[in-house]
Design a protein around this nucleic acid. Structure first.
Lengths: 220, 220
DNA sequence: GCAAAAGTGTTCCAGATACACCCATGT
DNA sequence: ACATGGGTGTATCTGGAACACTTTTGC
């Protein structure tokens, strides 16, 4: 059933840059394209915005459809609209940044996508469309916010130790942090609270467990 | 001539929040709508994105068409896409933030718009659509960046005094700044240089004139 | 000489950085 | 006992905030 308009309309998609931490590595979810254009290349998960759903909802739905993932955090990133960014038709893409705690959900490509997999955010394969720019922008946004927001907690499991959180910061920022200063900074942000438990695995002193504070701090 | 698609496409518009300083007041350009919906209400300048132009170019063109204005600064702000934001059809709007030095261009509404005028940014009339939210977001963005960018210089004439620049900051932030601290901060940002001239009008000590540094500092 | 605005310097505080030692556990 | 990683405190530096007096001009 065709849809007709007086003047040409671009297609509108959402693309999602979904970050997670796997085995201490900072990674992005990519889908291998099963169809042209860019067949066989890796691309961000995403798809068309349905005519009656919000952009945010579209991002959430696409992520779930393509990967089985329920992201816990979703933030609009930027809108990419150069006329030539898709060779098929004019496509304007509203990019979202999403965060997922490790081990939350199984990533399973649906029929649309040949394959879904995690890639190191700092060492990506060739990407379809302008998705490399989108990922770069997402990494910049995340890094910029780490210092003064609780965003990073969205990449952590329900309970975690401060050394684990520090390792997460270091994986994202790509540079080591001083342990004492890191600890002071996080505690002064007042975004975590101790559970009272400790994590004792390994031949050394156990680390205290923390959780994110109830009142979820605003990111913006 | 109709345009037909397999699945429904939203319309995509750009809306521009154009700020300026007029007579020391922080103001936004609004257009009075000549047609329904929201006929007679004030709205942001904007319009449809042509099928072969970039979003940025569309913003620039619409601003010029509707107001005769060549903004000197244009930055993508956010994309607004709630399904019910326009009663006619699904419209996704990519909002831009624009800045204009005072007295640069004449604001003249074209045939599309009944009337174009400047309104105090902090005391707006009722706006059409979700434009109040858009303006609020733009003000937030501008205020947030003032402290560490040279954005404010885009609201100044080619030559200006530091007290004039301070007055601009105060108009935008809505709160007074300490003169000595303000001066130190601006000079340490290294975004202005003295012209060597002074501005001597009024019965008092003349102020030194400055201009923006050649190498335009990045805003982001 | 006086009114009016421009220009300047110091003190203080808070947040960031640099840095080294003790603690709790498993083996 | 020792190896491993967790936990802590202090000195220093830097940037921001508070704050008052002198200078230059027009009248």
């Amino acid at each position: 059933m065709p849809y007709t308009y007086d003047h040409p309309h671009p297609a509108v998609t959402v693309d999602i840059v979904l970050f997670t931490l796997r085995g201490g590595h900072f990674e992005v979810l990519l889908i291998r394209r099963a169809q042209p254009p860019y067949e066989g290349l890796w691309a961000l998960p995403g798809g068309f915005v349905a005519i009656d759903e919000s952009l945010r909802r579209a991002a959430w739905r696409e992520l779930k459809e393509e990967t089985g993932v329920n992201a816990v955090y979703l933030e609009q990133l930027y809108t990419f609209g150069r006329p030539d960014r898709d060779p098929r038709e004019r496509v304007i893409s509203v990019a979202y940044l999403a965060l997922l705690p490790p081990g939350t959900a199984r990533v399973t490509a649906d029929s649309d996508a040949a394959e879904a997999d995690w890639w190191p955010a700092n060492d990506l394969p060739a990407l379809a469309f302008d998705h490399e720019r989108i990922v770069a922008k997402a990494i910049g946004r995340l890094r910029g916010r780490l210092g003064y927001s609780s965003m990073a907690l969205q990449l952590m499991p329900a309970e975690f130790t401060l050394p684990e959180l520090q390792a997460a910061y270091e994986a994202i920022l790509g540079e080591p942090q001083d342990r004492r200063n890191f600890r002071k900074k996080i505690l002064s942000l007042d975004i975590v609270e101790p559970t009272g438990q400790t994590s004792r695995r390994g031949a050394h002193r156990p680390a205290r467990l923390y959780r994110a504070c109830d009142r979820n701090v605003r990111y913006w």
